[in-house]
Nucleic acid binder design. Structure first.
Lengths: 210, 210
DNA sequence: TAGATTGTTAATCGATTAACAATC
DNA sequence: TAGATTGTTAATCGATTAACAATC
């Protein structure tokens, strides 16, 4: 029902509320919340209104309450198990990153195809061959995956994941992967983001604001 | 002049054209190009039309030509030097990732504040203290930076970068950072992307498509 | 009560898509 | 020439913003 743009902003709201909570802030207005994340007050109110009447006129939003509410909306009352495919430099950094498990995302399987890596331990997990994906997905109730393989292998890996029953994929490989209906994909693409900024830099004299 | 959404899609077009080139494809229609990246043919034509008449009726687009053209539009006829701030697990993975330099982005400085890291070598660069940023930015004509520090330090680091003259920042820290007008920022936020997908998974029975 | 701020509707803005004449 | 496909305009769709009554 709410548009996907709105759903994509919710995690940002949640995170900002968590920071406010840490700072001991008890209550925020849409104005204040928006200022922190460069979103207009109107947009925040509109976005939140898709999910009910979460604030109070004249008062604003109670930080604890709204955070809890958004987390529930996002399905974050529960934790989520994910598998990670590709244990190169990037995959290892992802596996070691504590920010996922702090936010309820637990990596329960590491996969690669490199025989030199298979069998190695990393953050308490044994790296397995990709042909073991289905088993781990079944055993650990995995519905999401992170893909950190090279571009050439990404589509094949995604196909395997989908076949194994994975319904949501975070793809770090620099290709748009195709998935059937009912499967969600989001892409992480640092090179493209950088290239979209060089566009503007190239157009503006480097001396302009000396 | 072209909207930012369009500029953000250009790198994707460029990359896809580079793949087509590798595959030996000489010519593409907007239809074919779009199919690879889930963009409608109309959108591709509209997007490209902001930059001139890049194709030929009845024929389509010549891969080499269009790629070259888009690269020039994006300012990728030249290479770009960047500095990387934060050399934790993620920063190290970024520094080691060859995908940047393959695409014309060269990391010319590594910075951290951890005395244990300063002085260490990584990919041929010596990790320096963040107070050396200005010097390196000046020496190497750096206009872009990558930030891979913890959330708490991100805004401070960004302030230093801006002060040093950096005009575009790719931020991996999980906070929206504030920058003055004329400075570009793009965020990389895997946790939020995952959380925006749990929204849908939580709403759909895990057994629905058994 | 007066002031503040929400929730919501309506107005605006911008982006995507459809359609088709131009042309290779 | 006939068929294909662009470039572009107009129509549609959707998202953001403005505005304000409701209400804390």
């Amino acid at each position: 029902m709410p548009p996907d743009v709105v759903v994509r902003r919710l995690p940002l709201y949640a995170r900002t509320l968590a920071y406010l909570q840490q700072e001991g802030v008890k209550s925020v207005s849409s104005q204040e919340l928006g200022a922190r994340i460069n979103v207009t007050a109107a947009q925040i109110r509109k976005d939140l209104s898709y999910f009910g009447q979460l604030g109070k006129q004249g008062i604003g939003y109670k930080v604890d309450e709204l955070l809890h509410h958004i987390n529930r909306i996002l399905g974050l009352s529960q934790d989520w198990n994910v598998v990670l495919v590709g244990v190169g430099h990037l995959g290892q950094a992802i596996a070691r990153y504590s920010g996922f498990s702090e936010k309820g995302i637990h990596i329960v399987g590491l996969f690669d195809t490199d025989p030199k890596k298979i069998g190695n331990e990393l953050v308490g997990l044994t790296i397995q061959h990709v042909n073991q994906i289905s088993t781990v997905v079944r055993e650990h109730n995995v519905r999401m995956a992170i893909v950190a393989v090279a571009a050439e292998q990404a589509q094949d890996v995604v196909n395997m994941l989908v076949k194994a029953g994975v319904e949501a994929i975070l793809n770090y490989a620099p290709v748009i992967v195709q998935v059937p209906d009912g499967v969600w994909v989001r892409h992480i693409d640092p090179v493209s983001l950088l290239h979209s900024m060089t566009y503007y830099l190239a157009r503006e004299s480097p001396f302009e604001k000396a």
